[in-house]
Design a protein around this nucleic acid. Structure first.
Lengths: 130, 130
DNA sequence: CTGTATCCCGGCTGATACTG
DNA sequence: CAGTATCAGCCGGGATACAG
């Protein structure tokens, strides 16, 4: 478990267990990364960057490293040239997907009434509930 | 909707709708505040501070203001002396509670195997699922 | 009682450039 | 291809002190 996650888990700010989840899933691109990996299975660093369409390598690296430390994603390095690194969901990561999905659902639902927030495409199935 | 929330909703980082939820619920004491209000119904500023046992007035004020801006809590000011301000959940806030609860559930579940994370008491019912 | 005003710190995010 | 290095800005969170 990553330092920050553990910190939250202990001191926890006001420390409801919910804050642990937020600490783990709360990174800038993390929900998107997880969703993407969930849909596509296995992706390489470059693919992730392209699909997400935005994050600089540094940021993407960090998010992935944190997700790896928190054991949601698995990083596989192939010792070859050119370099090849694959990312995929771990069991814990797969376990988190329903939660991520609900976060997306609620977030879309929350934002849509007032602002026709365009789902970033990454929001998978679903469409309209309620 | 609060500026930051809207920012996330639009630009959204990698902007999955899930990030909107995180933006709204992700504050330091917010899950605890929401849970507390959900359990107790209506609470005053001082009560919240005491129950949460930690946040400085400034921080607590900020969290509450943000939750108010995001329309999850309702702030009622009584024009009298001494001052009296009551906080309660809005419909949107109540709507968010199942999600908060799942966040807490997953967070506890995530943390417990490796570390017998003491729930901060604020995690309500539940026990074990799965 | 319910906040505000300052000051501070650390972390997150991003841009740009460079490397094995 | 898959990162790392450096620099920078912004924001969140906390401590302390003060105010209506």
């Amino acid at each position: 478990m990553r330092a920050r996650t553990e910190h939250v888990a202990k001191t926890g700010g006001g420390a409801c267990a919910a804050e642990i989840s937020v600490a783990v899933l709360g990174g800038a691109w993390k929900p998107s990364i997880l969703t993407l990996l969930h849909e596509r299975g296995v992706l390489r660093f470059g693919e992730l960057g392209r699909e997400l369409g935005g994050p600089t390598p540094k940021v993407l690296t960090r998010q992935l490293r944190e997700l790896e430390e928190d054991e949601l994603v698995i990083r596989t390095v192939f010792a070859q040239v050119p370099p090849k690194v694959e990312y995929s969901l771990s069991d814990v990561g797969r376990d988190a997907m329903p939660l991520v999905d609900e976060l997306a659902r609620w977030g879309a639902d929350y934002a849509s009434p007032q602002r026709q927030g365009e789902r970033c495409g990454r929001t998978p199935s679903n469409s309209e509930e309620k």
